[in-house]
Simulated assay, not measured.
Amino acid sequence: MSSFSILRATASFLAYPILRSRLPATSNTGLPRDEESQVGSHVPKQIEDYPRGYPRMAALQSSDPTFTMFRRFALLHVRTLLLAQDEICYLEEQLHDIDEKERTQLYLSSRVYDENSERQTVIREIKTKLREYDDDLDRFFKQYAYHEPTPRSLQSFRGWMNFTKPLIEPEAKFIQSTDFVSPPHKVEEGYLEELVEILARKSGIDDGLLKTERERRQSSDPDLHFYSIRRRRVVARIILTTVACSTLLIPTAVLFIVPNRGARLGVISIFTVLFGSIVALITQARRHDIFAATSAFAAVMVVFVSNIP
């Protein structure tokens, strides 16, 4: 090894600690520790930490599915679809007229030998218009898979908008519309979950019953409430299970007490109507499901009565 190579290697070895001491310290994320602490310290923790305007409004609507709603613009969608439909109808008439006026049978009987440039231009335009029309029609129909926000959710969002006023008045007029849509629920939710929220809030137990630490930290506004979806569903299922058991056990006990057969039939009729009403009101069961469940309940009660001496 030459003396020059040895000197260069020695200089690099001695310079490494000096360069290392001048480099900023880094963490496991690859960022300098000072920058990493600055990044973490500037992340907003609550909705009110975002600047008032579109940033705070976006924070609210992304924080909970209750506030995630946007306009459907159904009228404008239908209007543009109608105009596109008329354009295609006009092109359809044009193509029909061109075919009627065609004097060369070969042009009508062959795509390869068709030399009518006017017809080819109209067909290309029809293909373009149909592709746009089909895409718009498909997107519009997909919107009906979305859910409409509940009146209570829409009222809460409007109340927050009117109180906070994040937008200037011309840009906040959309909140008075009625064609809002929300994302579909991942699991079944009915009126029972909403009733749980209302009763818990009025009784003052919503903070301990329906909120976790995450929901409590989401906002410092005392009028803005966020509830744990999991806790709300658990409470609703407990109530639903209790009601379902009660609708079976209570009439069973009453039927044991009532000695008259006619009175027993009256008890069965009353509790059957009550059971069907509960299924229809606090669940999202479809019509045939309600009919099947009510019929099964009545059949169980009748069989039970027939076995009572």
Results as ranks from 00 to 15, higher is better:
residue 10 T to I: 12
residue 22 R to P: 00
residue 23 L to I: 04
residue 23 L to N: 02
residue 27 S to A: 08
residue 27 S to Q: 10
residue 33 R to P: 00
residue 35 E to I: 14
residue 39 V to S: 05
residue 40 G to E: 13
residue 42 H to P: 00
residue 43 V to D: 00
residue 45 K to T: 09
residue 48 E to Q: 10
residue 49 D to K: 08
residue 50 Y to V: 02
residue 52 R to A: 04
residue 56 R to G: 01
residue 64 D to Y: 04
residue 65 P to R: 15
residue 66 T to H: 06
residue 76 L to K: 03
residue 77 H to D: 14
residue 84 A to K: 09
residue 84 A to M: 11
residue 84 A to D: 14
residue 85 Q to R: 13
residue 86 D to P: 00
residue 88 I to L: 15
residue 88 I to V: 13
residue 89 C to E: 12
residue 91 L to C: 05
residue 93 E to K: 15
residue 99 D to W: 09
residue 100 E to T: 08
residue 101 K to W: 04
residue 102 E to D: 03
residue 102 E to F: 02
residue 105 Q to F: 06
residue 106 L to V: 12
residue 118 E to K: 12
residue 119 R to M: 09
residue 121 T to A: 14
residue 123 I to C: 04
residue 124 R to Q: 14
residue 125 E to G: 00
residue 130 L to P: 00
residue 145 A to E: 13
residue 151 P to M: 11
residue 153 S to K: 05
residue 155 Q to A: 15
residue 158 R to E: 07
residue 160 W to E: 00
residue 163 F to W: 11
residue 164 T to I: 15
residue 169 E to C: 02
residue 170 P to D: 13
residue 171 E to Q: 12
residue 173 K to P: 00
residue 186 K to R: 15
residue 190 G to D: 00
residue 196 V to N: 02
residue 196 V to D: 01
residue 198 I to E: 07
residue 200 A to V: 00
residue 201 R to D: 04
residue 204 G to A: 09
residue 204 G to H: 02
residue 205 I to E: 03
residue 207 D to P: 00
residue 212 T to N: 02
residue 215 E to L: 06
residue 217 R to H: 07
residue 217 R to N: 10
residue 218 Q to F: 05
residue 218 Q to W: 03
residue 220 S to R: 10
residue 227 Y to F: 15
residue 230 R to D: 08
residue 230 R to V: 09
residue 235 V to T: 07
residue 236 A to S: 13
residue 237 R to E: 08
residue 237 R to Y: 07
residue 243 V to N: 05
residue 249 L to P: 01
residue 249 L to S: 10
residue 252 T to Y: 07
residue 252 T to V: 06
residue 260 N to V: 01
residue 265 L to Q: 14
residue 273 V to F: 08
residue 275 F to L: 03
residue 280 A to M: 03
residue 284 Q to W: 01
residue 286 R to E: 14
residue 288 H to E: 11
residue 289 D to Y: 03
residue 294 T to Q: 08
residue 300 V to Y: 13
residue 308 I to Y: 09
